[in-house]
Design a protein around this nucleic acid. Structure first.
Lengths: 192, 192
DNA sequence: GTGATTTCTTAATCTACCTTAAGTTTTTTG
DNA sequence: CAAAAAACTTAAGGTAGATTAAGAAATCAC
């Protein structure tokens, strides 16, 4: 298994010695998901936070058949149903693989163990959550203040690496609009 | 100055000894704001994170005259323009007092000093940001999946303590609707 | 490879919510 | 306390985006 990416991800924020690296890696479980596999199904307990090594995951909320995409996670991103992971609640979110995807999973128990043994990881997660909060707040601002066409532009910038690889239906469900309306937004843009 | 509330807020998550308490409190600066005072004005540097001791603050984003309310902070809440506080950027958000408000401010420099001297505060902020992220994500889910009338109900529950004390215009700008439309939502509810 | 399924597009109709405006009530300010 | 400003309400007309439907294109599954 290749731990290079995840260690690099962490050492952007805190420095580790060999002992810490080894302990951390020993807590990870490698998992492979095929396209359409569920990493997490709504209703079940969410025991893990996942780091994407390769591939793409999508987290979405299902409300009577309609889906709202909460986030996409690509290489080098962390993803989980945070509320349920932390508070040991049944998951609100579903997480599925959009293509062959390899993740490294850290269970809640192992995360607790990690933070207990090496409190310096508190700083790492503090920064991760801090960034996640800032990103999410920025999204709220944009949802409140921008029309769909501009939110779509921002989406394409933010998710540039993958915006070609996911369906418009999925993009629409992230933007909070219907696929039909996204289609018409794109048609207008093309006719300029 | 009364540090009881802020210490209690922290000791919900980590335990402190007398030395830690004293050091932490020595880093705080007390500030008093009258109604309509700006705690932070968009464009200026955001040097502090504020803990509300008494009163109510409102954070909003201004886009060509229109306002989107990002959050209200009441007693026992932390508030800042997180992105700009952390990354030393000019503020996107404005923060104003909605009534006579007393806050305790921790500057970025003092926060860094605190985390350096007492790394256990990393855990505290990790939990604070973790919760903030979860709250913000929940709001995104609701913005995407619920009509305005239900978002209003949720708002009244979440901000029960203050929903009577703030104007409908401010509530509407939090929900992402116009005050006129909120007025009609309320009129319909009253006629049931 | 081919039939089945899903996605995308286009277009007509519909609705949640916006805009404008004018009147009323409440709050603020001197 | 009075005048001014801000907030709230109601209603008419307008628009962004939803819904429905149906055909075309792409993808999936055997």
């Amino acid at each position: 298994m290749n731990y290079d990416l995840i260690l690099f991800n962490i050492e952007k924020h805190i420095s580790l010695d060999e002992r810490e690296r080894n302990f951390f890696c020993s807590l990870l479980k490698e998992k492979q998901f095929s396209k359409k596999d569920f990493v997490l199904a709504g209703g079940q307990l969410c025991r893990n936070i996942s780091f994407v090594n390769t591939g793409i995951l999508r987290a979405f909320f299902n409300h009577d058949g309609k889906e709202s995409t909460i986030m996409f996670a690509m290489k080098d991103w962390w993803i989980t149903d945070m509320n349920c992971f932390i508070n040991r609640q049944p998951a609100m979110l579903n997480i599925v693989a959009l293509e062959e995807t390899e993740v490294l999973q850290l269970s809640k128990e192992n995360m607790d163990k990690l933070l207990l043994n090496f409190p310096k990881f508190e700083k790492f997660f503090r920064i991760i959550f801090q960034n996640a909060y800032v990103r999410e707040q920025l999204r709220t601002i944009q949802n409140l203040s921008l029309p769909a066409a501009e939110r779509y532009d921002n989406f394409c910038t933010k998710y540039e690496r993958i915006s070609q690889m996911i369906t418009q239906k999925q993009i629409a469900s992230y933007l909070g609009i219907t696929p039909e309306f996204l289609s018409s937004i794109r048609a207008k843009k093309a006719n300029l």
